[in-house]
Amino acid sequence: MNPHVIVIGGGTAGMEAAGRLARAGMSVTLIEKGKDLGGHLRDWYHLFPDRRSSDEVLEYLKGQISHQNIRLLTGQQVTGFIHKGNEFTVSTGNGDTINGDALLLATGFDLFKSERKEEYGYGIYENVITSADLEAMFRKKEVKLVSGKKPERIGFLHCVGSRDEKVGNIYCSKLCCVTAVKQAIEVKKIFPASKVFCFYMDMRMGGALYEELYKEAQEKYSVGFIRGKVSEVAVNINNRLVAKVEDTLVGRPLKMELDMLVLMAGMEMSEDAVRLAKETNLQMGENRFFKPADHHFGTNMGNVNGVFYAGACTAPLNITETISHARSAVTEIVNYLNTGRK
């Protein structure tokens, strides 16, 4: 009989890993809490840095998981697991239990809840939205203010819920900078006459072709970049948003009226995964993501033998990295099952 691997989470990492595992001869159960597979990918419009449609990636992943060895369980929340010897028993919310030889957690991330940064007015002022809200607008091809008007000036606010002790997240989510630049370009393409500004603390464009995208935003789209963290947002009598920031490079405070403010929400360990980790004694790092056994050559393993990690449940990762990470998890699992589960 084929070894049986249970994959928890049907996003990018889970789908890629499930497909690869099946092709490596494993029998796989892929459990997804939502109705559909695809995770956050289904919410994005175009992906950075090349602005390819997220649907294309989704199509690829769907192709990956169409395999006879893969059993899909959607709409099922994993509530916990126990392991006896080398066997894992996963229980789900509707009372089912599934037995397997290895466990792959691909639980992904949650977006930071921007309401928690009250001073930015999300949920208080109608034209303050998050990067995810903007992607949804892109997908619907309806980028507009609540009043239905075209935005003339749009601000992107970096580091919302990232690099912020005040919300307990000291780490950098690392994708928001490039996302902001990508979104700024998209907005400019829709509204060429609009003015777009990014408010940043540091531009962290450390991926392949990111810096090129940054340059393109400046060169072709005249996106403005202001170095300073916005402290608070208010509305004025004209019902326009007013962002307060220090233009740190000039060394003077700056007030700017905006029609729309996009909060670049950071990535956090998913709440469900935190609950699962606490219940099953899986170690989390200070950033609450799963703590890898080793930062150099053990990022797919944790503190429980036979439990593997893939994707953004270990750290903020982009799609490219998530897919690579899922593949390396597959290698680790195959190795584990073939060499006596040590």
Partner: peptide, 23 residues
């Protein structure tokens, strides 16, 4: 301090006169 300027942006004094805590 990472010189983000958030303190200066929020500053009550900075609203009236040239005063930046970051600086």
């Amino acid at each position: 301090c990472i010189e983000c300027g958030c303190c200066s942006a929020a500053c009550t004094t900075g609203n009236f006169t040239g005063f930046s805590l970051r600086e």
